[in-house]
Computed example of a mutant assay.
Amino acid sequence: MFAQLGMKPKPIAALDRLPEFPWAVSYVWDWFHEFSGGLKATGMAPVMAGWDDIQHWSQAMRLDLDPWEKRLLVRLANLRASVQAETESAKAKDRK
């Protein structure tokens, strides 16, 4: 993701202070872990999430999610896939 933005990430030690965890929405973080664990891989690329995925998952879990919660879950899942792709790309370069 950083490569796409033309940026280099700062090492963790260089960060002044990590932001506080948003406890008010910790339930969405729990949902994300459950949701992302059920995504199906369709090939070699990291698993992306779509609207159908979140709709099927929320129906299966009998959850009535607000639109912002659905958007957040899809964004988190796709950010996760982007980070995984960068990590795999870096590992492949290191192997050469």
Results as ranks from 00 to 15, higher is better:
Val47Tyr: 00
Leu73Asn: 01
Ser58Trp: 03
Leu18Ala: 11
Asp30Ser: 14
Leu76Arg: 02
Ala13Phe: 07
Ala77Glu: 01
Val47Ala: 00
Met7Asn: 13
Pro67His: 10
Ala13Ser: 11
Trp31Gly: 00
Lys96His: 05
Pro9Met: 11
Arg80Leu: 05
Ala77Thr: 04
Ala81His: 10
Ala90Thr: 13
Trp57Thr: 09
Gln84Val: 15
Gln4Ala: 10
Asp53Asn: 09
His33Asn: 06
Glu34Trp: 10
Ala24His: 13
Ala41Val: 13
Asp64Gln: 05
Asp52Leu: 06
Lys96Pro: 06
Glu88Trp: 07
Tyr27Ala: 04
Arg95Ala: 15
Lys70His: 01
Gln55Ser: 10
Tyr27Gly: 03
Glu20Gly: 03
Ala90Met: 15
Gly43Phe: 04
Pro22Trp: 05
Leu72Gln: 02
Leu65Trp: 00
Leu15Phe: 04
Val28Phe: 03
Phe2Glu: 05
Ala49Leu: 02
Ala41Thr: 10
Gly50Ala: 00
Asp94Trp: 14
Arg17Gln: 12
Ala45Gln: 12
Gln84Met: 15
Lys96Arg: 11
Arg71Leu: 06
Gln59Lys: 02
Gln4Leu: 13
Leu79Arg: 08
Ala49Lys: 02
Gln55Met: 08
Lys70Ser: 08
Ile12Met: 11
Phe21Asn: 01
Met61Phe: 11
Leu72Pro: 01
Pro11Gly: 05
Ser36Glu: 13
Lys91Pro: 01
Arg80Phe: 09
Val28Tyr: 01
Ser58Val: 10
Ala3Met: 06
Ala24Asn: 09
Ile12Val: 11
Ser89Asn: 08
Leu5Arg: 07
Lys10Arg: 14
Asp66Thr: 10
Ala49Gln: 04
Trp29Pro: 04
Ile12Arg: 10
Lys70Ala: 11
Glu69Gly: 00
Leu76Ala: 13
Glu88Thr: 09
Ala81Ile: 09
Ala3Ser: 08
Ala49Ile: 09
Met44Asn: 12
Arg17Ala: 14
Gly38Asp: 07
Arg75Ala: 12
Val83Gln: 11
Pro11Lys: 12
Phe32Glu: 06
Lys40Ala: 05
Asn78Thr: 06
Ala85Pro: 01
Gly6Asp: 14
His33Leu: 10
Gly38His: 07
Glu88Cys: 08
Ala41Leu: 09
Ser36Ile: 08
Ala24Phe: 04
Lys93Glu: 14
Leu63Met: 12
Phe35Glu: 00
Ala90Cys: 11
Pro9Phe: 15
Asp16Phe: 11
Leu73His: 08
Phe35Asn: 01
Lys70Arg: 05
Val74Pro: 01
Ala24Ser: 13
Glu20Leu: 12
Ala81Ser: 09
Leu65Gln: 06
Val74Asn: 00
Thr87Leu: 15
Leu39Arg: 05
Ala49Ser: 10
Phe35Pro: 00
Leu73Tyr: 14
Leu15Ser: 01
Arg75Pro: 01
Arg17Trp: 03
Phe32His: 10
Thr87Gln: 12
Ile12Glu: 09
Pro22Glu: 09
Met44Trp: 08
Leu15Cys: 04
Leu76Ile: 10
Met44Cys: 06
Ala24Met: 13
Glu34Met: 07
Ala92Ile: 03
Trp29Met: 13
Leu5Gly: 03
Val83Cys: 13
Phe21Gln: 00
Ser89Gln: 11
Glu20Met: 07
Trp57Asp: 03
Glu34Leu: 15
Lys40Arg: 07
Ile54Trp: 03
Leu39Cys: 05
Arg62Val: 10
Ala60Gln: 14
Ala49Asp: 08
Val74Cys: 00
Ala49Val: 04
Arg71Ile: 06
Phe21Glu: 03
